[in-house]
């Protein structure tokens, strides 16, 4: 019983870290543009599959494959903004929703063409067997996932709090006109947000692939759960996303362990609905600020 519990906690934290990273991807684009990118989950899928391509097909070393996959996803994110979202900046919210959904279908379809319908795996980042803690097994890859997630959260927080670029990006969201007036290149900041968000999503995809494999149609559900984490934490809140991602991961893991593995995917979604219905500003969001946003 105790061992099981510990095991569920570990797997919950691992998958929760992934959700947190997906949620952070939503937050970055939302912070700068107030757009929710429905294609966010597809970048996770693409990250995993591109890493498989670079490591498995081109036989690059794993760390290089990781970097290349993230870079490629970043470029796709840039292209998505440059060629599609950028054209629709003045469109209504409904149009933007439809457009990002269309992009997600296109990415998913392309992935199916490129990789087929089979799931792929990657070797773990470090070899060696699981580490035993109080009878529970921790895969080294889980440590990699948690570590990389922590790194992303810390560096992003620093980036947005301390760096000139980060401050400039946030200024764009608060008031694009004013940002333009003080000489911030808003367009460039939007590009940057799409690149960053795609890259972080892809990184999440690469690190999860050794644990749970990756296939072309995983994106939508990962994206939806990631959005659940973003909403639960409060849109735009990076620390909130981390906490919420872990809550979602743990809830899912416990459900799979103690209740029903079939319904584990529903847990995060039920939580998502509950947040949207009961506390749409999220656990860490600001109710006053939330009222002004477009939802």
């Amino acid at each position: 019983m105790g061992t099981d519990f510990l095991q569920y906690v570990i797997s919950g934290i691992t998958i929760g870290a992934i959700y947190a990273m997906v949620a952070i991807g939503y937050n970055i684009i939302y912070s700068v543009t107030e757009i929710i990118n429905f294609a966010q989950g597809e970048f996770v899928m693409l990250g995993g599959l591109f890493a498989v391509f670079f490591a498995g097909t081109l036989h690059l070393p794993l760390y290089l494959a990781f970097i290349c996959a993230v870079a490629v996803a970043g470029c796709i994110g840039l292209a998505m903004d440059r060629f599609i979202i950028g054209r629709a900046r003045e469109s209504s919210v409904l149009s933007l929703i439809i457009i990002t959904i269309a992009v997600s279908i296109l990415l998913k379809g392309s992935a199916m063409l490129g990789w087929g319908k089979d799931p792929y795996s990657l070797p773990a980042f470090s070899s060696g067997g699981p580490i035993m803690v109080a009878g529970a097994a921790i895969q080294p890859q889980a440590l990699w996932i948690i570590g990389i997630c922590a790194l992303v959260v810390i560096s992003l927080t620093l980036f947005f709090r301390k760096s000139v670029y980060g401050q400039a990006m946030l200024a764009c969201a608060n008031n694009p006109q004013a940002a333009r007036l003080v000489g911030i290149p808003v367009r460039y900041m939007v590009f940057l947000s799409f690149i960053l968000s795609a890259a972080i999503g892809a990184a999440a995809g690469v690190i999860i692939t050794p644990v749970s494999m990756m296939e072309y149609e995983r994106g939508a559900l990962l994206g939806l759960k990631g959005f659940g984490a973003a909403a639960l934490g409060g849109l735009g809140q990076f620390f909130g996303a981390l906490v919420a991602g872990l809550i979602l991961g743990l809830a899912e893991s416990f459900c799979a362990g103690y209740l029903s593995s079939g319904y584990k995917d529903a847990v995060a979604l039920v939580l998502l609905l509950m947040v949207l219905f009961l506390k749409p500003e999220g656990l860490f969001g600001n109710r006053e600020a939330a009222r002004l946003k477009k939802f």
Binding site: I97, L224, A231, L273, K294
Partner: peptide, 14 residues
């Protein structure tokens, strides 16, 4: 907007 879309999406998947 986005939240309504996500809520209905989540409901549909459930």
């Amino acid at each position: 907007g986005h939240y309504l879309a996500m809520a209905t999406l989540g409901f549909g998947v459930i």
